[in-house]
Amino acid sequence: MSEPMRLRATLQGDVADVRILMRHPMETGTRKDAKGEIVPVHFIQSVTVNHNGKTVLEAQWSQAISRDPFLGLRVKGAKAGDKISVTWTDNKGDKRTDETTVAAPS
């Protein structure tokens, strides 16, 4: 079971500043564990960000991305209350989707 992402989306003018923290080991496949055995490769392969159901970002990731990755993006034409959903899929087929709404600037 994977940990929920931490999502924040704040409106700045007509642009939503979206910040995503994901919890993932992002194993490179080269690290060895305490017994000296190679830890199998395990990383997020694809990330999709949707704004009100419309895809605004599609990314293909590799082992080069760090553990517990951060992704930031700015979505044009967003309004307060809009839905932002994020989905990642890793190389073991694990999948996770989390959703947030765009908050008005504080």
Binding site: E3, P4, L21, R23, D68, G72
Partner: peptide, 12 residues
């Protein structure tokens, strides 16, 4: 600090 992975620990 703006995007501190520690927030994931606090959330958990």
């Amino acid at each position: 600090a703006e995007d501190n992975p520690g927030e994931l620990w606090a959330q958990r």
